[in-house]
């Protein structure tokens, strides 16, 4: 497999245009490409649509000021959010109430599966989650179907311009390995965007991650960024 270019976080941020739709792996910023996000913040670009489980945290595990994409929200660089839970970032609700931010909420399993569907070439997802709830009014809900006597919602696939992965180890061919709970949405997001950038704590030689243990195949990754070691 060809080696993937290793670039800086700043170079990665420069590839992301104003107004891009960006998938950000991470759950409360665990497993998030935080160095690239910092550079996006510094770039001042805006109008982004963010697709992520949540909008990360205003304070990091060791008291860091801003931890992940919460800073993009804080800096008014985001126009639309597609997420499952935004309760840890009150600014999302405040900006939404003020009319400055569109927010679309989906159940966690549904968001994961809609992204997976896009990356797996499926036309949608049929899930029992959300039947007879506000999810039926979501623009991502295409209708209801009854199969063998049970109701399911038909949910649309979700695609992005860019996916930013937060990995622990990435080898020179782009194969990724996630430590602990870092994996979360990263593995599905790696398959559902036009441009995929894997930020990693350690760039390692090919072979260090055994083929059986690769979580994201290198063919999904376009660029590698070496981030902060934690």
């Amino acid at each position: 497999m060809a080696k993937k270019p290793v670039i800086t976080a700043k170079e990665a941020a420069a590839m992301i245009p104003e107004g891009a739709t960006i998938m950000c792996g991470g759950f409360l910023a665990c497993g998030q490409a935080r160095a690239i996000v910092k550079e996006l913040v510094a770039s001042g670009k805006g109008g982004f649509t963010l697709i992520a489980n949540d909008m990360a945290r205003a304070v990091g595990p060791m008291g860091e000021e801003f931890y992940g994409i919460a800073e993009l929200i804080h800096n008014n660089q985001v126009k639309r959010v597609i997420a499952t839970h935004v309760g840890m970032t009150p600014e999302v609700g405040e900006k939404h109430t003020a009319g400055d931010l569109e927010v679309f909420l989906l159940p966690q399993g549904t968001l994961a599966e809609c992204i997976r569907a896009d990356g797996a070439g499926l036309g949608g997802v049929l899930t029992p989650t959300g039947v007879d709830t506000l999810v039926e009014d979501s623009p991502f809900c295409l209708g209801k179907q009854n199969i063998n006597g049970k109701d399911y919602l038909l949910m649309a696939p979700i695609h992005a311009d860019v996916a930013l992965l937060g990995t622990y180890k990435c080898d020179e061919s782009g194969n990724c390995w996630y430590k602990g709970t870092m994996r979360n949405f990263n593995t599905v997001m790696a398959t559902a965007a036009d441009l995929v950038i894997a930020e990693t704590e350690y760039v390692v030689p090919v072979g260090e991650i055994e083929p059986e243990n690769v979580h994201t195949p290198g063919i999904c990754v376009d660029y590698i960024v070496e981030g902060e070691k934690k």
């Binding site: 409360l28 665990c30 399993g109 968001l111 430590k179 602990g180 593995t187």
Partner: peptide
């Protein structure tokens, strides 16, 4: 705290016979 957390963001752990999963598999 940067690699294994719970749904509230607090440091978590896995049991000796437990496992980790991605969100799609987990749900």
């Amino acid at each position: 705290p940067y690699h294994v957390t719970d749904a509230g963001g607090a440091p978590a752990s896995v049991a000796f016979d437990g496992s980790f999963a991605d969100s799609a598999s987990n749900f």
